[in-house]
Structure formats: C-alpha cells, structure tokens
Simulated assay, not measured.
Amino acid sequence: MGSTTSKYDAPSMVPVGVDPTRASIARVYDAALGGKDNYAIDREVLRQVATVAPEVNDLAWSNRNFLTRAIRFLTDQGGIRQFLDCGSGLPTAENTHQIAQRIDEHARVVYVDNDPVVIAHGEALLEENEVTHFVSADIFEPQDVLQHPLVRKYLDFTKPVALLQVGTLHHYTSDNGAELMREYVDALAPGSFVAISHFLDPETPELSPLARRMEELFLHSPMGSGMFRTKAQLREFLPGLEIIPPGPGEEPDFTLSDMWWPDGPRLRPLSPVEQCSAAAVGRKP
C-alpha cells in the first residue's frame, strides 16, 4: 500500500511508464465511471468539461451500457465467439469477456490497449482465464493490431470476429478514420460484426453548440482528444457493412447510444449529454 506522503494522488502504485502529470484516456473514463484508478489530472479533464456539461459522466455510461447490450446481442443472436476489443480501457464490473462468457464460457476475447495501467490491471485480472488475453498495441495502427502475434494466435480470422470500437474513435482526431476502419473491416471474415459508439454532434440548434463546446474543451484539456462527429461522418466508419436496425421497425443507422436496443421502457428523458453519444452495429456480408 502507498503511504499518505506519496506525491501521486492515486493509484498508490504507479506502473513503470506511467506519467501521472498527463491525462490518460483510460483513466479519464475510469474516473467518469466512478473508478479509483485515476489521478487528479484525469479528473481535471472531467471538471473542465463539466463547466459546460454537468452530466459529462453520462458520455462514459452511455458507451459502457451500449457495450453491455451489444456484447449480449453479438454472442446470443450473432453467434459470435471471437471478440477483438480495441481500446478496452480499465477493467470494470462488466467487461466484454464476462458478458460473452456468461453465454458461452469458451468465447475468446482479446483486449487491445497501449496504456501501461490498463495492461497491468488486465493481465492481473485475467491471470487464470485461458481464453481471454491482453495485447499491448496502438489501436490506431490497424496492422500493428491485426498482425500482432498474440492476436493471430488467439483469434481465427477465417471465421467471424466481433471488432469493438466502443468509445475509441472519437479520440482519433485525423480525417482518415474511414480508411483506418476499412483496414480493420477488410481483415474480417464474412459474418463478422463491428460495434461502434462515438461522441455525436446531433446537428440541432439546441444540442450542436453543446457538442462543439464539449469537443473544444476535450481537445484543449490535458487529455487532448475527443471529437464530436455527425451521423454522416460516423457511417463512414462502417464501410460496406449492413447496419443492424437499432430497434423494432427502425431504419438501419446510428442511433443514440442509450437507445440502441434498450433493456426496457425509458421512464426518464435523456439528458442533453446522453443525446450527444451515438452507436451502431454493422455486419459484414
């Protein structure tokens, strides 16, 4: 245990290669979800954005809850037994492998992240899980991920795979995100799925100014990333895929993350921030 005199705020033990003076995407999300594996610099990102969007933590929960529902769908209805979870972040109570393996204990999951804190926690968590593994790689370098020896060892790309980019692509600030995702999609077998959630510019007079103000604060915060894209821009991330309708009788398209096949009737209105997160699942024909 760390002493109270440590110069680091938290966690008490800082893994090699971690700079507690710079915000980490994974640790900022951990803070937003109420976790304890974050530093003051990470919480400062949320504090800054909360000056214009008090419910900023809702962005993280919208992503997380969509992930839970999407994994259940992919495993149960999609018949997927292989998952490539990009930018997995710090482990929480309901991780991809726990959801999928509740349906099929043999479902294989490979998490990809390049944050030393994530890798350290993930490897410790999965020490006795023979079908779930962590890989250290940059998810914005598709070939580094796809050709990684451990990815190739544990996933069979001749069979369907679910590729997860949940809460990740809005941290890719380049304009060639469509090309990046095409590299991933081209590597997938027919019958594979891609699940995406992303910060959304709703393109309405009421919400667009909020989205753009949050974007400005994220981009200029210690984290330095967090783009809010329109639905038209998000569709480019699913090249050649058949988008699954996000609800009964709905058109196949991106929808609000909280409204992608919700678990039950909604009794409270979505907050403005919850209306700035979109999600979709696409299938490769």
Score class of each variant (00 low, 15 high):
Tyr154Val: 11
Asp263Glu: 14
His170Gly: 09
Thr51Gly: 06
Ala32Tyr: 02
Leu67Pro: 07
Thr158Asn: 15
Leu126Tyr: 02
Val16Ile: 02
Thr21Ala: 10
Ala279Tyr: 15
Tyr39Asp: 06
Asp30Pro: 01
Val109Lys: 07
Ala187Trp: 04
His133Tyr: 03
Ala279Glu: 11
Asp42Lys: 09
Ser6Leu: 01
Gly249Val: 09
Tyr111Asp: 01
Arg229Trp: 14
Ser62Ala: 04
Asp258Gly: 14
Ser174Phe: 12
Thr75Gln: 10
Glu179Lys: 15
Pro239Gln: 07
Tyr29Met: 02
Gln233Ile: 01
Gly226Phe: 13
Leu33Pro: 03
Ile25Arg: 14
Asp175Lys: 15
Trp261Tyr: 12
His106Thr: 13
Gln147Tyr: 06
Gly249Trp: 11
Ala195Asp: 12
Arg22Cys: 08
Pro269Glu: 13
Thr230Phe: 13
Leu241His: 09
Leu200Val: 12
Val161Gln: 08
Pro222Arg: 08
Leu234Phe: 14
Asn129Leu: 10
Arg64Val: 05
Gly282Tyr: 10
Asn65Tyr: 13
Thr51Lys: 09
Thr21Asp: 11
Pro252Ser: 06
Ala120Ile: 01
Ile119Gly: 01
Pro11Glu: 01
Ile139Trp: 07
Leu241Asn: 13
His171Ser: 04
Val281Arg: 11
Lys153Val: 00
Val145Met: 15
Gly226Tyr: 13
Ile244Leu: 15
His170Tyr: 14
Tyr29Lys: 00
Ile41Phe: 01
Pro160Val: 02
Ser3Pro: 00
Glu206Ser: 06
Asp156Thr: 09
Thr230Asn: 15
Ile41Trp: 00
Gln165Lys: 15
Gln98Ile: 14
Phe228Cys: 07
Thr255Met: 08
Ile103Phe: 06
Glu274Phe: 11
His106Glu: 14
Ser12Leu: 00
Ala93Glu: 14
Gly78Thr: 10
Leu188Ala: 06
Asp76Met: 05
Arg27Leu: 00
Pro245Asn: 13
Asn63Cys: 06
Gly87Val: 03
Gly87Pro: 00
Trp261Cys: 03
Phe254His: 09
Gly177Pro: 14
Thr4Cys: 12
Leu46Ala: 09
Lys231Gln: 12
Ala178Glu: 15
Ala70Tyr: 02
Ile80Phe: 03
His220Asn: 12
Ala280Val: 13
Gly122Ala: 01
Leu59Cys: 07
Asp104Met: 01
Phe83His: 05
Pro205Arg: 11
Pro262Lys: 04
Leu188Ile: 07
Thr51Gln: 12
Asp19Glu: 03
Tyr172His: 10
Asp9Tyr: 15
Arg266Asn: 11
Asn38Pro: 01
Pro252Leu: 05
Arg182Asn: 11
Ile41Ala: 03
Trp261Ala: 03
Arg152Trp: 00
Gly2Asn: 08
Pro272Ala: 05
Ser208Trp: 07
Ser24Phe: 00
Cys86Arg: 04
Gln165Val: 15
Asp201Lys: 15
Asn129Ala: 14
Arg22Pro: 02
Arg235Met: 06
Arg22Leu: 08
Ala189Leu: 06
Arg212Ile: 14
Ala195Lys: 08
Arg27Glu: 01
Val49Cys: 03
Thr173Ser: 13
Glu242Trp: 01
Leu188Cys: 04
Ala278Gln: 13
Ser3Cys: 05
Pro262Cys: 05
Tyr184Ile: 05
Pro262Glu: 04
Val28Cys: 04
Ala31Leu: 05
Met13Leu: 06
